[in-house]
Amino acid sequence: MKAWQIGKRQGIDGLRQVERDHPVPGPGEIALDVIAAALNHRDLMVLRGKYGSDLPDTRIPLSDGVGRIAALGEGVSGLEEGHRVIAPNFTGWLDNGGYGFHVFGHDLGVTADGWLAERIVIPAAAAIKVPDSVSDDSAASLAVVGATVWHAMVAFGQAGDGDLVLAQGTGGVSLFALQLAKALGATFAITSSSDEKLERARELGADHTVNYRDNPDWAEAMLRSTGGRGADVVVDTLGFDSFGQTIAATAVEGRIGTIGALSGSPRDRPDFDQGSLIAKNIAVKGIASGHRGMLASALDLVAQHGIELVVDRTFAFDDAPAALEYLDRGAHMGKVLIDVAR
């Protein structure tokens, strides 16, 4: 079979396409013929040696994808050959109470082989059957953003009818947060540096949009747009480098699920107004993706509401490096996919 390997982790140029034997599922495992895979920012970090340590050159990348069951290992029940399935990237984190550092020991595309191959093997317990009504593109795009956003916005944030939800940027996380918020009956605010992307976000249902390039104090601009109302729930992709503005944009007793640091490096620790954080009684939680149950809930909602995740562009399997370069340029809106077997 064809597969891509991460190589020496010196960047996208280190990727190597190879021929490998088809993996065989062991007890409690299933083999999947991969249909499509999707990219995340973490994939770029893996290739640059900034995410995961002591990874072999032969590691297969990518944490998102959808596949069709090709073979069942010994002892597997409840699944059949031909079923389409997805899985959380932390395949050992199955439900509430199951989180610990051990989940990083089987992280698809990092400490375990990921989706960028014609066939992969995953634990059967992690697999979630995809309803017929959900497209391959949506299924392939859902695992990381679905589990992460559900954790931040619903399991922690308790977003629902009438709440105001804020997300920053127009990548896959923020756009799924928009789609999820509207399905839950919430109002939604989003930021971007592109008026064109903000117009597209409004077409998807965004109620408040702010161009942060035109409005460097984007929190104040958002509050003007909302009539002074802060966000009840924030899906924070920017991190501490912009945390002062995130706090300013958050309502009294708001909830901030912080999932990334796109506005600065992990070393950036500028001061922010801790007094406002305390005075507003804001709750902050770090979100390390989500467990299988959260992803299953997100998938159920996608099927129930007929949600099609936003896909910016799809690349051929042989063009995987070009797909990653496109993601790295940051001009995309939504997800970037790789077609593996269609």
Rank of each mutant, 00 (worst) to 15 (best):
I120Y: 02
H102Q: 12
G97D: 09
R84A: 01
A38T: 10
A36K: 11
D43W: 11
G98W: 00
G109V: 06
L62F: 11
M45P: 05
I122W: 07
V76G: 13
W93R: 09
L47Q: 13
H83D: 14
G75I: 11
H83R: 02
L47E: 09
D95M: 03
A36I: 15
A38E: 06
H106R: 11
L44R: 14
V110C: 15
W115L: 09
A112V: 04
Y99R: 10
R84Q: 04
E118C: 09
A71W: 06
L55I: 13
L108T: 10
L32V: 03
Y99D: 13
E118P: 04
H106C: 06
Y99I: 10
A70Q: 08
I122R: 02
L39I: 12
N96I: 00
G65K: 10
T91G: 05
W115V: 07
A36Q: 15
P61G: 01
I120S: 01
R48S: 14
V85L: 03
A117W: 06
T111R: 15
V110M: 11
R68L: 01
R59Y: 10
H106P: 02
T111W: 13
D57E: 14
G28A: 06
W93D: 07
N96P: 03
A36S: 14
V24Y: 00
G100R: 05
I69N: 00
G82A: 07
G73C: 00
A71F: 13
G28P: 07
A71D: 08
V103T: 15
A38K: 03
A38M: 04
L44T: 06
F101H: 01
I69F: 03
V24F: 04
R68W: 02
D64I: 05
T91K: 05
H102K: 13
G49V: 09
G65Q: 10
V24N: 04
I30D: 00
D54L: 14
L55K: 08
L108P: 10
G28S: 12
I86S: 00
V110P: 10
L94S: 07
V24H: 01
D107R: 03
A87N: 02
E81Q: 11
T111P: 11
K50I: 01
R42V: 14
I122Y: 08
R119Q: 14
G67C: 06
G82S: 08
Y51Q: 14
F101E: 11
G114W: 04
V103I: 13
I35T: 10
T111G: 12
L116C: 13
T111F: 13
E74N: 02
L47D: 08
V34R: 03
V103Y: 09
R68Q: 11
L32I: 07
V121A: 03
H41D: 09
A31H: 08
M45D: 15
A36C: 12
E80G: 01
